[in-house]
């Protein structure tokens, strides 16, 4: 079965949730991936959404556009207030965070605030929302994003959501005792961090993608192992389930 880039991204992101107990997911592809995981490899997965929903079973074809609307609530186990939802993460209950961002740098820092300076920016973006909180407070965070050169930049214009800051122990030194950015999942492959320098390196490639192709779409130097593992292509079952979740392709494009 053929598939689009976004479909591939959603499928590989969903696979990351096998064995995971809870995922704090943002709307868009991260949430679609979380719902797909719930319907395939992780039936007991508790999806947590920052508008204040824990454990919902969202309705296929009626996925939410935002984290706080009633589409996020069907069959939820609890609807806490927003602050209290985040405090479950601060206390350490929430396993994986799934976030995106307009820009990402070699240390996994994300920018969703401004292109250019904070005062009178070139482009004012929507802002953090809960991304900063999710990346600071969940046990581990995966960034789910399309892989484009304009996104993967040597230095983000603004650190909205901290990855490993300037690498090494700098994240811990800033007071971020818990949590970690574990992986970047893109439509070309997955990237992980060197355990010492905390810089990104290539971890795996999706079917048919070359190392050069990933490097061409990355605005900074990206080390790669000699033999790069290749992801299993999306199965017919994964794709059919995915398409049934978003039949109007509001999120799959």
């Amino acid at each position: 079965m053929s598939y689009s880039d976004t479909e591939l991204l959603a499928v590989v992101a969903a696979r990351q949730l096998a064995g995971v107990t809870s995922v704090f997911a943002g709307v868009g592809v991260p949430l679609v991936a979380a719902v797909l995981a719930q319907k395939t490899r992780a039936p007991q997965l508790v999806i947590v959404v920052e508008g204040g929903s824990m454990g919902p079973r969202m309705v296929p074809g009626r996925l939410p556009y935002s984290t706080n609307e009633m589409r996020t609530a069907p069959r939820a186990q609890m609807l806490p207030g927003i602050t209290d939802t985040f405090l479950f993460a601060q206390r350490g209950f929430l396993d994986v965070g799934f976030v995106g961002g307009a820009q990402i740098d070699p240390y996994g820092n994300l920018n969703s605030s401004v292109i250019g300076g904070y005062e009178r920016p070139k482009v004012r973006l929507p802002g953090s929302g809960g991304a900063n909180d999710i990346i600071s407070l969940c046990r581990r965070v995966m960034v789910v994003t399309m892989h484009e050169r304009r996104r993967f930049v040597p230095k983000v214009d603004f650190v909205t959501s901290p990855g490993f800051l300037s690498g090494g122990d700098s994240r811990r030194d800033a007071g971020l005792v818990f949590g970690t950015v574990s992986r970047i999942v893109t439509h070309l492959g997955t990237l992980a961090f060197d355990p010492e320098s905390r810089r990104l390196q290539l971890e795996s490639l999706h079917p048919g993608v070359t190392v050069q192709q990933v490097r061409d779409n990355t605005g900074f130097e990206l080390p790669a192992p000699e033999h790069v593992p290749v992801t299993e292509p999306p199965s017919a079952e994964e794709l059919e389930t995915l398409r049934s979740i978003d039949p109007e392709r509001n999120f799959l494009g």
Binding site: Q90, N132, G175, L176
Partner: peptide, 17 residues
Amino acid sequence: TLTMLGSDLMGVTDTKT
């Protein structure tokens, strides 16, 4: 709180450490 630490949001808001 344990959030916002290390980010540039600290520099543009009235937070302290």
